[in-house]
Amino acid sequence: AIVAEVLGVDLERVHVQRVDSDVSPIDIGSYSSRVTFMMGNAARRAAEDLKAQLLRAASHRTGHPVEQLEVAYERIQVRHRPEVGVTFMEALHAAMERAGALTATGAYSSPPMGGSFKGARAGTAPAYSFGAYVAEVAVDPETGLYRAEKMWAAFDCGRPLNRLAVEGQVEGSIHMALGQVMGESMNYRGARLLNPSLLEYKIPAPAQMPEIEVLLVGDDDPEGPFGAKEAGEGPLIAALPAMGNAIYDAVGVRCYELPITPDRIVRGIEDRRKEGRAWKGA
C-alpha cells in the first residue's frame, strides 16, 4: 500500500517477492511490532527513488521540468495542466528505454535516541502506540464463572494504512488477551508438563468471544510512513488489566496473577467474607 501510494498505481501492481537470505541484505527480524514502521519507511524511500526515475522519464516525454510534474492515479501529469501527461506504463517504458530495468533501494534507521553510554538505546523507540480499553463482564459469585460481554478498544496506531487489517489485528489481540486472562497456562508437576498440546492449552472458543467495538484514534506520527505507527503487539496489552479491573468491579476480588480462573475468584470472595467484608454486590 505504501509503495502504491507513492507511485500512484493500483495496489495490484505491487508484489512482494520471496528472497533468499543468502543473497538478501541482513535484517534482524520481524518482531517487536516494527514491520510497518521500519520496513514501511524503507519501502517508501525505495518507492520515492523509483518515482524520481519515472518523473525524469516523464519530463523528457512531456517537455516539462520535473518540478512541474505530479503523480496521479496510474498517470504522471503537469500540475497546472493535468490534461498534459503520460500514463504510468508510458513513463515506465520511457525510463527503461534510457536505463534498462529499473531498480531502487531504500533503507531506514531510527533517529538517535537515549544517551551515549552502552545500552542507552535499549527499550527506546521512535514512536509508541497507545490504547484505552473498557471491558464489561458477567460474573457468577457462587461458581466464579465469568464471561466477557463486551470490549471497547480505543487504539492509537497513528494513521491506519489498512483500516480493516488494523481492526482485525485489534480483535485478534483481544482474543489472545482473553486467552491469557481466562485459562492459558502451562501446568507442571515437578518437571513434567501436564498440558503439552493445544487440546489442554485453553484458548477461547469463538462462542466465548465478546462483542468488540474498535475505535481507531490518534494523529499521524511525524516519523512513521504516512503517519503510521504499529498495531502488532500493542493492541493486546490494555485488554488484560481491563478484564481484571472489570472482575474486581463486579465482585470485589483483585487478582494479581494470570489466568484468573473461577476457583481463584471464589477463593477471593470467601477470603473477603472471612475478613468480614461482604461481597461487593451483596
Score class of each variant (00 low, 15 high):
5 E>N: 12
7 L>R: 01
8 G>H: 09
9 V>P: 11
12 E>S: 14
15 H>M: 05
16 V>K: 12
18 R>H: 08
24 S>G: 00
25 P>D: 04
31 Y>L: 13
32 S>C: 02
36 T>K: 01
39 M>V: 13
41 N>V: 04
43 A>D: 01
45 R>T: 07
51 K>S: 13
57 A>H: 05
57 A>F: 02
60 H>W: 01
66 V>W: 08
69 L>P: 14
70 E>Q: 13
76 I>S: 09
83 E>G: 04
89 M>S: 10
99 A>C: 06
101 A>G: 03
105 T>W: 10
106 G>C: 01
106 G>P: 12
108 Y>H: 04
109 S>T: 12
110 S>Y: 02
117 F>S: 00
124 T>F: 00
125 A>Q: 09
125 A>T: 00
126 P>E: 11
129 S>K: 00
131 G>T: 13
133 Y>F: 15
139 V>Q: 06
142 E>T: 06
145 L>W: 04
146 Y>E: 03
147 R>C: 03
148 A>Q: 05
149 E>S: 11
149 E>I: 15
155 F>W: 07
155 F>Y: 15
159 R>D: 07
161 L>R: 12
161 L>W: 09
161 L>A: 05
163 R>E: 06
163 R>F: 00
165 A>L: 13
165 A>M: 13
166 V>Y: 04
168 G>Q: 08
171 E>W: 02
173 S>A: 15
175 H>R: 10
176 M>F: 13
179 G>F: 03
181 V>L: 03
185 S>Y: 01
186 M>N: 12
187 N>A: 12
188 Y>T: 00
189 R>G: 13
189 R>C: 08
196 P>V: 09
196 P>C: 10
199 L>I: 12
200 E>G: 07
203 I>N: 09
204 P>I: 07
204 P>V: 06
206 P>C: 03
207 A>I: 03
210 P>Y: 02
211 E>I: 07
217 V>P: 04
218 G>Y: 01
222 P>H: 07
224 G>H: 12
227 G>M: 01
228 A>W: 01
232 G>M: 01
234 G>M: 14
239 A>D: 02
251 V>C: 15
252 G>N: 12
254 R>V: 06
257 E>Y: 05
260 I>F: 10
264 R>W: 02
265 I>V: 14
267 R>K: 15
271 D>Q: 15
273 R>K: 14
274 K>A: 13
275 E>M: 14
277 R>F: 09
277 R>G: 03
278 A>D: 11
